[in-house]
Write a protein that binds this DNA or RNA. Sequence first.
DNA 1: ATGAAAGCGCTAACAA
DNA 2: TTGTTAGCGCTTTCAT
Lengths: 345, 345
Amino acid sequence: MAEKVTSLQVAEHAGVSQSAVSRVFTPGASVSQKTVDKVRAAATKLGYRPNVLARAMVSGKSRIIGLVVAYLDNHFYPEALEILSNALQERGYHVLVFMASQTAGNIDDVVEEILDYQVDGIVTASVAMSSNLSQRCLQAQVPVVHFNRFQDGDGVSSVTSDNYQGGRELADFLVAGGHEKIAYIAGWEGASTQRDREAGFRAGLAERGHALFAREVGEFDADHARAAAHAMFNVPAHDRPDAVFVANDHMAFAVMDELRFGLNLKIPDDVSVVGFDDVPPAAWRAYDLTTMRQKANLMVAETVETLLTHIETPGAAATRKVSIATPLIVRGSARVPPNLPADKG
Amino acid sequence: MAEKVTSLQVAEHAGVSQSAVSRVFTPGASVSQKTVDKVRAAATKLGYRPNVLARAMVSGKSRIIGLVVAYLDNHFYPEALEILSNALQERGYHVLVFMASQTAGNIDDVVEEILDYQVDGIVTASVAMSSNLSQRCLQAQVPVVHFNRFQDGDGVSSVTSDNYQGGRELADFLVAGGHEKIAYIAGWEGASTQRDREAGFRAGLAERGHALFAREVGEFDADHARAAAHAMFNVPAHDRPDAVFVANDHMAFAVMDELRFGLNLKIPDDVSVVGFDDVPPAAWRAYDLTTMRQKANLMVAETVETLLTHIETPGAAATRKVSIATPLIVRGSARVPPNLPADKG
DNA sequence: ATGAAAGCGCTAACAA
DNA sequence: TTGTTAGCGCTTTCAT
């Protein structure tokens, strides 16, 4: 029936000092078995549990990680969030969510708010930070890891896929598949993922004596992507690409729908489509999308590792820029090079 | 360069008392404009921001809402989470995420952990709580709202769609469409949403002189659903249903894929498929799924409203059981009754 | 309107 | 190993 049980009450019940109670609930502390027993008994009886906030105040460790995330409609992020939250939970941390509207200025306010909660660390998912802001976190001693966004300079770590190499291999794959008119539908131009994927893709094409045949911008948004596809493909057959790399799966689905149902093109007979991410719907039979897989669990593992290292050895750890290889997942949405068997992932 | 600025430092800089600083940052407090100016100036200069945790300790209000969520793969939940987090953020609250593994016992531990953070309220998304646990929250004075799960008794509020009525209208729709052999693929049997949708569906069929032709269980899981569809439809044509209601969209996509690509059936010519939720992929042309829309934003709005009412008027507010109507979204995956024009939602 | 003083519940020296 | 004593940074009486 008690509304709030404190360590002091437990102490009185157990006939020990308040600090004894504290020690019982502090992993590495020195307490006799007898004290432990008495305290545990009293605690259970009263329903006592340590107040995390009070602990945070004095210890300076809140065991809260702030997560800044911009949009959850691309299924890659919910997936990552689930893995991240689970991984941190196992290590005794929890995720406090902050939605950052697309608004540029907004992100600054959001970070300030996060800092107000005395978080032990910050993960930004697909959100760039002004170096001004990075400074602020640095001086507040709060380590930051950019997830799925590369940013150089600053003292911030980042974990990304090797987007450049991924783009390049996609170019290889399409050229090897015998395509001649290869196009690209870009994501939001402010994103490092977009930049790197495109740069790698162009480099790959160039290496094999090709160049981009057409290009539109999809902004990482389904509606924009659909419009981009329409503009790109609603042209005389001669001007129409025979392959297109769409900068992420989320857009690729909209593109495929527009091509098949809007423009009556056959995939991959009339046009090959490849994406990037390998989110769950990519494996659905209705899309069966050939794509580069972003290994979400590996990316999260590196993120957690980096963050906790910085938290637990303050100042000591160097900023890391982790880049993770993306395996090509060959499915049915793109014509396959003769010697490469399709593998239904 | 300062690492942590306290109100005391600001006070010294501004030449006022520490409590004056506190008052400046407390909305309804009485301070002279002069003091406000001095303090604000000093605060800005030093980069001071109030420590939310310290404030929480003394005021008893953490402005943290604990969210328990089980899985994010059904796109309905990320969507809801995004709306929820934004709505709370606007009201000055933030969401602390706790993943509850499917494990039954786990949920108890998770709730205890949440309570440790002195949250002001708890939202459970599609997670049931033992009444034992509800008690615990009640006595801790922490209001709980079940999102998308109905639970009677206890002192917990809940916000759901009107799943019973939704199921019933789906039955109406399929019968009116001239279907004779109507089947159902169930979700996880422990879920109130599953129970209510099925009960409503059966009632609707019965009212019009029909009965369930076949039934399988999909557990709200794509793989199970696929297997269920296979078992249900891989039979002689005579025994095959001509319509199926799948308990949520997430499963319906897997079912559609199995029917079309696994068993070579035409939708809706050979079989009509309807779902529940209206998650984004339902509108994708490759699925074009007729479904009942769960109004996520309305559900979230009610959840927030309920929760904050309980938080701000402790004890006073009555527990609410909100139920929200689900409009039928008619698309192309089901044969349409003659007099009802298809509306491409 | 303002300052002094008393905690919120806890951890971390410091003695003993 | 244990108890005593300071605070962590803030809000909130209570005087003034």
